Simulated scan of single mutants.
Amino acid sequence: MWDSPPPEILTFVLIRLPIKSIITCTSVSKTWKSIIQNPSFISIHLHHSKNKHPLLLFRLPPSEHRVSGKELYALYCDNNNPDLYEHTRFDFPLSGTFRVVGTCNGLVCFTMKFTDRFFFWNPLVRKLVILPTPSVGLRTLRFYNPSIGFGFDPKTDDYKVVRIVSASESESSKVPKVEVYSLATAQWRVVTAVPPTGTAFADRCDPHAFVNGALHCVASKNNIDNEILNFILVFDLGDEVFREIAMPKPLDNPENLVGVSVSAYRNSLALIQWGVSIRCVDIWVMKWYAVASSWTKMFSTLADQGGFLPRPIGFKKTGEVLLEMHKGQFVSRDLETQQIKDLRTIGDKFTFVDSYVESLVLLNKPNCAFAY
Score class of each variant (00 low, 15 high):
292 A>W: 01
203 D>H: 10
206 D>K: 07
258 V>C: 09
264 A>W: 06
221 K>H: 07
196 P>C: 07
197 T>W: 03
193 A>M: 07
287 K>P: 00
243 R>F: 10
271 L>K: 07
205 C>E: 05
285 V>A: 01
196 P>H: 09
276 V>I: 06
219 A>I: 04
199 T>R: 02
252 D>S: 12
303 A>G: 09
298 M>Y: 04
298 M>S: 14
262 V>Y: 06
295 W>E: 05
209 A>V: 03
261 S>Q: 13
188 W>K: 11
296 T>N: 08
202 A>P: 00
227 E>R: 08
260 V>D: 03
255 E>S: 13
196 P>N: 07
290 A>P: 00
262 V>L: 06
254 P>L: 10
215 L>I: 04
187 Q>K: 12
191 V>L: 14
226 N>R: 12
216 H>W: 03
265 Y>C: 15
267 N>L: 07
294 S>T: 15
271 L>V: 14
201 F>R: 11
278 I>G: 01
307 G>H: 13
260 V>F: 08
269 L>Q: 09
259 G>F: 08
207 P>G: 00
296 T>I: 04
281 V>H: 05
235 F>P: 04
277 S>G: 05
234 V>N: 03
214 A>C: 02
288 W>A: 01
225 D>W: 01
254 P>C: 11
267 N>R: 11
216 H>I: 02
229 L>F: 06
303 A>M: 06
274 W>K: 14
303 A>W: 03
227 E>Q: 09
302 L>T: 02
229 L>M: 13
